[in-house]
Design a protein around this nucleic acid. Structure first.
Lengths: 256, 256
DNA sequence: GGTGGACCTTGACGTTACGTCAACTCCTAC
DNA sequence: GTAGGAGTTGACGTAACGTCAAGGTCCACC
């Protein structure tokens, strides 16, 4: 009978094992002020009690939920607002899940392409006008001759011209983003002017044939639906792709 | 006319913008040997050409797929095995997705508990015998009196006894894991001996009442179905929970 | 031909949440 | 007394860059 330990306290290893973590982690939490030992012996040994264990388990729970240590401190210490913190975290988790789903789809596509013997091409290459990558979709959506005409036209360009073309696209995307962030509406005059340039650019890319209203709208929708295009616009700020889609729809209804 | 730049090359900033990344990243890739500039001026400036751009875009694609830089090198340089690498990566992604889904469910439960005014408790507290956390499920699955009897029994223990009880569970779980990793089958004599101890332990936890064959099997299934329990076993190695379930099923069929 | 500003270089430190030594002390058992 | 199993602090390493800092280069304009 070790009566001296009647108040039930544990060494660092014991509590670590009990909670399923390591002693190093506990020392780190001590250093960060997340979890202090309930008692420190004259020899420097750390001892933990029941209350420590509970706090530790709550810490590990929150950590497993993906929170950073700073966030855990906030939740545990300012517990009145833990619901808000958790809700924010839930949002983040769902964003992550959506991102993962896109990644999985993308890896699958890449694998399919590889098994068909096609080379790996970057998603953002030439804003989706890399025809080896998008051939299937383009053919399916707009027909074989649309693809081939666009392809012939593209190949006819010099590298410099291709680059110039790409730069124009970049410039248009950046202008859309700027307008979006300035709070303009998709149907505003300034934005519709950008969209006019955009249409001009697509018409060029189609070898001079202007898309119909329906086709133009459809391309806009694709910017939102297809993550490879979405990324191209949303890299300037989330929501840009949707903004572009709306602008294109408005333009098509008014002018095409 | 600057004829010297007819072969179309870009400065570090230009190519960074074109590919949607930063110059720091390009310097880092150079340092890591991932992407060397096509030319380095006498002043030390890095210049990149079309080929660089393509390689960079493939790098960024793979990076967005979540691969580490070392893995990217492997894929790009030993391209014959890229399919295997991607398939392995796909597996990992789907594991991640499953983990995320569990996290989301867990955060939702935590939020629900908070809104009902219950405290946050760690999932792994006492291997699921924390009754404030598991009350709902226990009551629903085995009835109110089973819960209350177990609860009374648990509260009657001293802290030391509770701790001892928890340690026994840890020991059983560790033994299962060891047997599993040694390649033993769930129905083997050694494993069934562990299961006998496990049953003894559960019987204790139930205040002395031995579970029926059906209840015992059901508990085993729960270890797999409920992530809070799964984690408790799988922290010793993935698949341990399923192994335990099989062992319990075998034991129930043979002895209960 | 000077000047200002944008762009380039290398170098070094910061980031997260610990893992992994290294060197040393402490406790317990035989 | 000694072996070995804990405990301690301290320091460095991790992945993939971001972010200064200090200094050289380029280009357009006056």
């Amino acid at each position: 009978m070790t009566a001296a330990r009647a108040t039930s306290e544990w060494s660092i290893q014991e509590i670590a094992r009990a909670a399923g973590t390591t002693s190093r982690t506990l020392r780190y939490y001590d250093e960060r002020g997340l979890l202090r030992p309930s008692r420190v012996g004259s020899n420097g040994y750390r001892y933990y009690d029941q209350e420590s264990l509970v706090r530790l388990q709550r810490i590990l729970l929150l950590r497993d939920l993906g929170l950073g240590l700073d966030a855990i401190v906030e939740v545990l210490d300012g517990e009145q607002d833990s619901r808000a913190a958790l809700r924010a975290h839930l949002d983040w988790l769902e964003h992550e899940r959506a991102r993962l789903a896109r990644q999985i789809a993308s890896v699958r596509r890449t694998l399919d392409a590889l098994e068909k013997g096609e080379p790996i091409m970057a998603d953002e290459a030439f804003d989706g006008f890399d025809h080896t990558q998008y051939k299937d979709e383009v053919v399916q959506r707009w027909g074989k001759e649309a693809y081939e005409s666009s392809d012939r036209w593209w190949r006819s360009l010099s590298k410099d011209e291709q680059r110039e073309f790409q730069r124009r696209q970049e410039s248009i995307a950046a202008d859309y983003a700027k307008a979006y962030q300035a709070g303009e509406t998709p149907a505003s005059k300034q934005v519709q002017e950008i969209t006019r340039r955009h249409l001009e650019w697509i018409t060029n890319a189609w070898g001079g044939k202007q898309p119909s209203a329906e086709q133009f709208t459809c391309i806009g929708q694709m910017y939102v639906d297809d993550p490879r295009f979405t990324k191209n616009y949303d890299k300037h700020g989330e929501g840009t792709a949707a903004f572009v889609r709306d602008a294109m729809k408005a333009y098509a209804e008014a002018n095409l």
